[in-house]
Computed example of a mutant assay.
Amino acid sequence: MDRFVLTDAQWAKIEPHCLGKLTDPGRSGKNNRLFMEAVLWIVRTGSPWRDLPSTFGNWSTAFRRFRDWREADVFKRIFDALSEETDMEYAMVDATIVKVHRHGQGAKGGPQSQAIGRSKGGMTTKILALTDALGNLVRFELLPGHRFDTIGVAPLIRGIQFGALLGNKAFDSNWIVEELNQRGAQVIISQRPARAQKLKIDAKMYEWRHLIENYFCKLKEFKRIAMRACKTDQSFSAMIYLAAAVINSR
């Protein structure tokens, strides 16, 4: 179980954001650290909640607790706490596709209401991410697998300052180029062959884009991220936040 155990340094940053402290209203939580490691075990292994080892306690209790913390945005706060120091000299944007397990389908409102769509790979979800210059996650958006990457870019970059934006040709859009020009940010985006007026980009700087691709590889080491088994976006996002927090704090 050691590979799923949080370090003391990680836990020191996580603990203040957990529910159930003595100063919180309502019932106090029992062994928040063990519970966090239980959720991390689920995210890392991709196992169903019913398969949670008894070491972590009753699986149903753990799941209900996860649901309560998800509703309270605890995992987002933990991600923010463990991602304090970002290097925004430049930012990178990219997307990755994850297959949706049949257990991840069937939420109220249908798949279209939970960022699930049918693409060449079947039922899929797209994780659109913005990372900093070190390749660490800053923000992400969930999209149905068949939607264009550019659809989720606006909320990703809203209110964030960076010196340049790196992206592949999927992000070669006039509105993105215009937005970056207005900001005074450098455009480091590979261009489509059909673009009439070619833009000069820093080819050497563009090579650094491998960092965001490397990040997706790290993220997909967590099996619950590599294949989505969560019915709702809220649960899937919570697991991404926890995995990203652990990665960013290594």
Rank of each mutant, 00 (worst) to 15 (best):
L52E: 03
D80L: 15
I176H: 06
V100W: 04
T232C: 01
P144L: 01
G152L: 07
Q161A: 14
Q197H: 13
K76E: 15
A115R: 06
G159K: 02
S54K: 08
H146E: 12
E141F: 05
F66N: 04
G46F: 04
L19E: 07
K120Q: 10
S237F: 03
L211H: 07
I176L: 15
Y215D: 03
A62N: 14
R139D: 07
M1S: 13
T23V: 12
A115Q: 05
T96D: 05
F222R: 00
A164D: 04
Q112L: 10
G121S: 09
S235R: 02
L156H: 08
E207V: 06
G20A: 04
K218L: 13
H17I: 04
E213N: 02
L6D: 02
E71I: 07
K120V: 07
R3P: 14
S47V: 11
Q10G: 02
K200S: 09
K99D: 14
R50M: 08
H146Y: 09
F236T: 05
R44W: 06
V138A: 05
R64I: 06
R77Q: 13
W175F: 10
F79V: 04
R195C: 01
A154F: 06
L19A: 09
V98R: 08
W49P: 01
T55A: 14
W59M: 01
A115F: 04
A164K: 01
Q186S: 10
G152A: 08
N58S: 13
N31E: 15
F216H: 10
L211Y: 01
T232G: 01
G106K: 05
I157H: 10
R147S: 13
K218N: 09
R65A: 03
D149N: 03
S173K: 13
S190C: 09
W208R: 14
G163Y: 06
G163W: 08
C217D: 14
S235F: 10
K223D: 04
G29K: 10
A95S: 15
K108P: 02
I42K: 09
N32H: 05
R44Y: 12
I188V: 15
A9C: 01
Q161M: 07
K231S: 03
A243T: 00
F79H: 07
G57M: 06
D2Q: 13
K169L: 09
